[in-house]
């Protein structure tokens, strides 16, 4: 195996996704920015909102796996070895994290005025700064 180069990864993604690469990167940046903005603004995680975001994340994980099977013309029956299970889990975790952060950011922006009301809660205090 020859040397790996981050620019090669990027070139491959560009070939694979085309314009979608930039849209996905923009969406990820937006989600992350909204998430961080909400954390700073609210002084920590808002527990109720975080639970909803995690529920969206759970669904997002499954959506990611189903999407992967769909675009690759395959199905759960094609799992052939341990690494395949790892891949399925990795896809689920990726989908979960992405959707959780995005959903939290969107919910936070949507609930701009009511943050102070939502804030109290066990999670808020344990995860807060």
């Amino acid at each position: 195996m020859q040397e790996l180069d981050p620019m090669v990864f990027f070139s491959v993604f560009q070939e694979m996704l085309g314009l979608w690469l930039w849209l996905i990167l923009a969406l990820a940046a937006f989600g992350l920015a909204a998430f961080v903005y909400a954390l700073v603004r609210d002084g920590g995680l808002v527990s109720r909102r975080f639970v909803w975001a995690q529920l969206a994340g759970v669904a997002g994980g499954f959506v990611a796996i189903i999407f992967m099977w769909w675009i690759t013309n395959s199905s759960p029956a094609d799992i052939g070895g341990a690494i395949d299970v790892v891949l399925v889990l990795a896809i689920w975790i990726g989908g979960f994290l992405g959707w959780t952060i995005l959903a939290y950011g969107v919910l936070a922006l949507a609930a701009r005025g009511s943050a102070a009301v939502e804030r109290p809660g066990a999670l808020g205090s344990s995860f807060g700064t």
Binding site: M1, Q2, E3, L4, D5, V8, F9, V12, F13, M16, L17, W20, I24, A28, A64, F67, M68, I71, L87, A90, I91, G94, G95, G98
Partner: peptide, 15 residues
């Protein structure tokens, strides 16, 4: 295609 593919993409052929 989505980002989840990207990991596999980069792995596909060693660069």
């Amino acid at each position: 295609l989505k980002l989840a593919l990207a990991g596999a993409a980069a792995l596909a052929v060693p660069a």
